[in-house]
Structure formats: structure tokens, C-alpha cells
Amino acid sequence: MVEEKLIGLGLPPTQHQETVREVAAHMEDRFEQGLARGLDDSGACELALKEVDDWRQLSRRIRRSKQQEGQVNYRTRALWLPGLASLTATMGALTVITMINLEPRIYMYGSLAFAQMYERLLMVLPAAGALGAYLSRRANGDLKVRLAAASFPAFVILSLFCPAIIVAGVLEHHLTWGVLPVAFALMVFNWILIPCACLLLGALPFLRNSQIREQGLAQ
């Protein structure tokens, strides 16, 4: 019950679990105190529930008191900043590659160009993904958050390319409606799926918690 009530704590997973455990223990003690005073189960339960009038307000107050003053919150530390670092590394690499004029390689399937990609960029992407996942792990990001931070550049490119392909392709008459789905699929494959796989490849070593950190928590 406490877990459900404190769902909006917005704390890192370990801190969240610890807080839920502590609050639940307090309510358990109050419940047992009620039983010891001669109340029946429902009376003792009511006594325990009276401890908190407004769970949402409690969540807010706990979040405020746990967050470090002047520091950014968990989501910013574990997702947005690592994601931004990964994106900066990706865009930096892409800029350098285009500046030194390396042409993309085009792969053909019959008469259809099915993949147009900067191989050198793909070689750099695992490092960008690793950077995102590493920074997210340092900020106690859980598995999903680390994966999201590592693959962040792919999502940004997707959000930029979707409107861009519609504008460039249809509104400026470079593509017809018939070709658009094929162009979109190729773009997603070349610029989203393959780069995303490369980014996640680099993130792999950082998906497990570091042994030093686990030892620290155990102590």
C-alpha cells in the first residue's frame, strides 16, 4: 500500500525503496501499538492510517527534503544530462566527419539504394552510447534510464527527421506520397535503428551496477 501511495516520490530507485520500507515500518509499528492498546485489527489499522492525511503532500515533502539543495533532480542527473552528453558526442562526431568531407557509403539492393550511412560515424557511436550509459549509472540511473540515456541521440534524430522529411519530401515536392513511406522507412533504418543499435552496443558494459558501488551499498 505504501509503495502505491508514494508512487510520485521521484527519487532514485534505491532511495525510493528505502523510503517506502521505512514508512511502511513506521505504520506497522503504529498498527502494533494499536493492537497492544487493545484495539482490534480494523481499529489498529485506522490508527496507522491516521498518520498521514495527504499522501501526495507527504511525497512532495519527502522529495524536497531528500533532494540536494542547489542540485538537479534525479531525472535530470540520470537521464537528461547523460543523454545530452551522448547527443553532443554524436553530433560532434557527425560534424567532424562531414567537415573532413567523408562521403556516406551507399549500399544497393538491386536498383534500390537501401542503406546510406556514414560508417565512421557508426564506429564512433558505441563510444557516445557508452558515455551516456556511464554518466547515467554514476547518477544511480536504473536499467531503463541508462538505456534511454545511451540511445538518446537516436530519439532526437527521429524527432527532427520526421517533420523534416515531410517538409522536404512533400511540401517542397521532392517526393511524392507514393515514395514517402519507402523514404521514411529507409531513413528510420539508416538513421535511427542502426545508430541506435551502435549506441546500445557501447552501453552494454554499463548496464550492470559497478562492483565498487555494490560493495559500497552492501557496507
Binding site: 521505512e22 498521514v52 507527504l58
Partner: peptide
């Protein structure tokens, strides 16, 4: 109570 103690 719980709500006043733990934030403190």
C-alpha cells in the same frame, strides 16, 4: 506523526 517526522 509520520507526515511531520520523516521529512524532518
Amino acid at each position: 506523526n509520520l507526515a511531520s517526522l520523516y521529512p524532518m
